[in-house]
């Protein structure tokens, strides 16, 4: 019975993807989109077009930089928690717990408003080469997002490192590989493959936290939408477009990661 239903289901899915109710739903959706296009005001689009593109570019840039840096930071964090002695594992654990236990918004504000208000009190910081950067908002945004990504991903990497079968590492050691070589050739790749599905989810989550940097005056796509709303007194149109943009980026990200996942040589059981 269940088997039969499953087979029928599969057949229905492959051959009859366009069932009558789907067509109706798609028509309704099209109607909504057309209605939105014709009955809402979109005349502000040309004016903010360039700004919007710049905002998207900046959002993507922040996403890429924080993900890469965060991942690089997460590897030692995961390694320390998986194998390190107490003195390495405990601080890493505390770091991950603190990052995962507090809202990103608070971390961001703590760094930007908190640290940012402390720095000017020290003359040697004001005179150093870092000062021009420290006066801007984006270093704080990047730092906060990087730390947050590292905190979440560190926990994932801990599980991934611990999940690599012991036999693999022992075999590598039996081959006489040095510790660094084992890590580079065996341990890290296998842990990475294991963490990849979670990494997809984390990256999408990271994308969804990038608009938070708009609250500390970094002009990303979210801030552009906010500016449009202030300038034109429109409530919905910019937000709807913004939601559409984020959905598109998410779709592209998920698609890209699924392509990478499909390239993994073999399934690890």
């Amino acid at each position: 019975m269940a088997n039969e239903a499953a087979i029928i289901n599969v057949v229905a899915r492959t051959s009859l993807w366009l069932q009558p109710h789907r067509i109706v739903l798609i028509l309704i959706a099209l109607g909504l989109v057309l209605g939105a296009i014709f009955f809402m005001r979109w005349d502000w689009l040309p004016q903010y077009y360039e700004m919007g593109l710049l905002g998207i570019w900046r959002s993507l840039w922040i996403l890429a930089v924080t993900c890469v840096l965060g991942f690089l930071l997460a590897v030692p964090l995961g390694l320390a928690q998986a194998t390190g002695s107490f003195w390495f594992a405990a601080p890493a654990k505390v770091f991950c717990t603190v990052i995962r236990g507090t809202p990103l918004l608070i971390q961001l504000w703590l760094l930007y408003y908190g640290l940012g208000s402390l720095f000017p009190q020290y003359p040697w910081i004001r005179e150093s080469w870092m000062w021009p950067y420290l006066r801007q908002a984006w270093p704080y945004g990047v730092l906060a997002l990087t730390l947050s990504f590292a905190g979440y991903e560190g926990e994932v990497m801990r599980g991934a490192f611990a999940g690599v079968p012991k036999g693999q590492l022992e075999a590598a050691r039996a081959f006489g590989m040095s510790r660094w070589k084992i890590f580079r050739r065996i341990w890290l790749p296998q842990a990475f493959y294991r963490a990849l599905p979670t990494l997809t989810g984390e990256t999408v989550l990271q994308l969804k936290s990038t608009p938070l940097v708009a609250t500390i005056s970094v002009i990303d796509i979210f801030a552009v939408a906010g500016k449009v709303r202030q300038d034109t007194y429109l409530t919905y149109e910019p937000l709807l477009l913004l939601a559409l943009i984020y959905m598109t980026i998410t779709g592209i990200l998920v698609f890209a990661f699924s392509r990478i996942e499909a390239r993994i040589p073999n399934k690890i059981g």
Binding site: F222, L242, A243
Partner: peptide, 8 residues
Amino acid sequence: RAVPELVL
């Protein structure tokens, strides 16, 4: 699940 919470 695809749109940021803040926007939603």
